[in-house]
Design a protein around this nucleic acid. Structure first.
Lengths: 131, 131
DNA sequence: TTTCTAAATGCAAATAGTTTGCAATTAAAT
DNA sequence: ATTTAATTGCAAACTATTTGCATTTAGAAA
C-alpha cells in the first residue's frame, strides 16, 4: 500500500515534512541516510531534526525500515524487511531477502536483527585498476 | 595464541596502552565498546584517542574483531569471528557461530558482513514485570 | 468558515562517537 | 647511553543524533 495512505490511517497529522519525506523515500531504490534524505528536501526547508523525529515515527508505525551501516542510520520503504549488500567501490546496491529462519537461538525470543554487508561487485572485480 | 604474543610478532612497538588494552580485552567474555574499554583503563591514564587508534590497528592486524551495534563500535578477541545476541532487558549476551555459507550472492565477492541481534532471553520473558 | 488547541515544527544548543593535527614522549635499534 | 621514528596525550574539529522550547499548524469543533 502507498506509504502516505498508510500514514493517513494513523491518528498523526499529515504535515508537509511527513509528506515529502514519505514521497521521497517511496521513490528510492535503496536505503537512504538521514543526511541524504534531509539534503534532498532542502528546497522544502525541512529541518534535520524533523527528519529524525519523523523517520523514527514512521519506523515505529511500520511504514519504513531502518538499516544501520557504518554507524549511521539508513531508511527504506518496502513490503517487507530485507537486506542490502553494497559494493565498496562503485556503491552498487543489491537487495536480498531476509531469511529469519536461518537464526535458531533457543535461549531468546522477540529477536531483532541487523545485517549489513559490503563486497566487490563482479563489474568492479573485472575492471582493471587505474594507475 | 595469546594476543600480546601475536602483537609482538609485528613490527609495531609494544607500548603500555597497547599492552593494557589487549590484556583487558583478553579477559572479556563479550564485545566491549570503546568507551567501556577506555573507562576500564582509567587508572592507567590512557587516552581515548589512543584506544581508538590501537583498536583500529589491532583489528587490521587480525588480533581483534569489531562488531557495530547501535551505531557504536564494539571489539572482542576470539579465535574466529562470530556473532552475538544481547537481551534487551538484562544485557545477557550469547555468542553463536557465523555461518558465512548462509550467504550466497553471485554478483559479489570479498564479502564483509556485520550482524547484530537483540532479543529477550528466556529468563527475562518468564520473569513477571514489576509494577 | 472561523476558532481553537494539541501536535508538530524549526531553531539553538547539548550530547555522543569518532577523527585529526601536533608537540612531547618513548620503545627499541644502534 | 644515544638516537629517532613511532606513539602518545591533549586540544579541537567533525559527524550523527537528541533535547528543550517558543512558534506554527493540521484538523477537530463550533
Amino acid at each position: 500500500m502507498d506509504p502516505v495512505d498508510k500514514f493517513r490511517r494513523t491518528s498523526y497529522k499529515l504535515t508537509k515534512p511527513r509528506l515529502v519525506i514519505l514521497e521521497y523515500l517511496a521513490k528510492q531504490k535503496k536505503p537512504r541516510s538521514v543526511r541524504e534524505i534531509h539534503q534532498q528536501l532542502n528546497r522544502e526547508r525541512i529541518d534535520l531534526v524533523s527528519a529524525y523525529r519523523n523517520l523514527e515515527l514512521f519506523k515505529e508505525l511500520g511504514i519504513i525500515f531502518e538499516e544501520k551501516m557504518n554507524n549511521q542510520s539508513y531508511f527504506y520503504i518496502a513490503d517487507k524487511i530485507h537486506h542490502h549488500i553494497i559494493c565498496s567501490k562503485c556503491r552498487l546496491i543489491e537487495c536480498f531477502p531476509c531469511h529469519n529462519e536461518i537464526i535458531r537461538l533457543k535461549n531468546f525470543s522477540s529477536i531483532n536483527h541487523q545485517l549489513s554487508m559490503t563486497g566487490i561487485c563482479n563489474k568492479c572485480s573485472s575492471r582493471k585498476e587505474k594507475r
